[in-house]
């Protein structure tokens, strides 16, 4: 009888790991808390840096799991996860008990809740939205201010919930800078009359073709980049957003009225991941993500033998990195099962 692997989380990492494990001849169950798989891909419209439709990546991933007969369980959360001798017992909220020889945790990330940065007034001021809200607008093909009008002056705030002690996150989420650049270009394409401002602390364009995209945003799309952390947003009588920022390179504070302010929400360890860490005694780091046994050559290994990590439950990653990390997890699982 083939060995059984439970994969927790049906996002990018979980789908890739489940499909690949199954292809290796293992019996695979994929547990997903939502009613559909795909995770954050469902919310993102176009991907950086090549601007391809996210559904293409989703189709690839779901195709992989379907073709390889992964057993999918949706609307499922974990109530208990124990290791007994050489196998795992996974108890779900609907009363099922799955016995597994190995477990892959791919619980992913949550977007930072932007309302926690109180000074930006997300959830209070009508025209303050997040990067995810903007993706919804892209999908609908309609980018509007709260009153339905076309926004002309638009600001983008980088590092919302990242690199911010006040938000409890010291780390960089890595993807918000490039998301900001991507979204700025997309808005400019949609509304050539609009003026875009990105407010950044550092431009961290450390990925293939990211820097080139930044340059394109400046040169082709006339996006303005102003170095400084936005300190507060407020609302005028006609529901526009006034921001205060220091233009650090001019050495002067700057004040500007905008029609729309977009917050680049960072990535955080998911609530589901935190719960699972408690249930299964998994180690987490100061950044609250799962802590793998070795940063360099054990990034998939957990402190529990036979339980492995895949993807952004260990740190912020882009899709390319997430898929690579999931494949590495597959290789760890196969090795482990061969030797156990």
């Amino acid at each position: 009888m083939s060995k059984h692997v439970v994969v927790i989380g049906g996002g990018v990492a979980g789908l890739e790991a489940a499909g690949r494990l199954s292809r290796e001849g293992l019996d695979v169950s994929l547990l997903e808390k939502d009613s559909i798989t795909g995770g954050h891909l469902n919310r993102w419209f176009k991907l950086f840096p090549d601007r391809r439709d996210s559904s293409e990546v989703k189709d690839y991933l779901e195709g992989l799991t379907h073709a390889n007969n992964v057993k999918l369980f949706t609307n499922v959360t974990i109530e208990k996860l124990n290791r007994d001798k050489d196998h795992f017992s996974v108890l779900t909220n609907d009363g099922k008990e799955l016995i597994a020889d190995a477990v892959v945790v791919a619980t992913g990330f949550d977007l930072f809740k932007s309302s926690r940065k109180e000074e930006y007034g997300y959830g209070i001021y009508d025209n303050v939205i997040t990067s995810a809200d903007l993706e919804d607008m892209f999908r609908k093909g309609e980018i509007t201010a709260a009153d339905g009008t076309v926004p002309k002056k638009i600001g983008i705030v980088h590092c919302v919930g990242s690199r911010d002690e006040k938000a409890g996150n010291l780390y960089c989420s890595k993807l918000c800078c490039v998301t900001a650049v991507k979204q700025a270009i997309e808005i400019r394409e949609h509304y050539p009359e609009s003026t875009l401002f990105c407010f950044y602390m550092d431009m961290r364009m450390g990925g293939a073709y990211y820097e080139e995209m930044y340059r394109e945003a400046q040169e082709v799309w006339s996006v303005n980049f102003i170095r400084g952390k936005v300190s507060e947003a407020s609302e005028t009588i006609d529901k526009k957003v006034v921001i205060k920022v220091e233009d650090t390179l001019a050495g002067r504070p700057l004040k500007m009225t905008l029609d729309l302010l977009i917050l680049m929400a960072g990535m955080e360890m998911s609530e589901g991941g935190i719960k699972l860490a408690g249930l299964a005694g998994l180690k987490t780091g100061d950044n609250r993500f799962f802590e793998a046994t070795d940063h360099h050559f054990g990034s998939n290994k957990s402190n529990v033998e036979g339980l492995f990590y895949a993807g952004t439950c260990t740190s912020p990653m882009n899709i390319t990195e997430t898929i690579s990390h999931a494949r590495a997890a597959v290789s760890e699982v196969v090795d482990y099962l061969k030797n156990s």
Binding site: E118, Y122, G123, I124, Y125, E235, K239
Partner: peptide
């Protein structure tokens, strides 16, 4: 202005 956002903070 969404009052419920402020109420959540309050």
């Amino acid at each position: 202005m969404k009052q419920e956002g402020k109420q959540a903070i309050w």
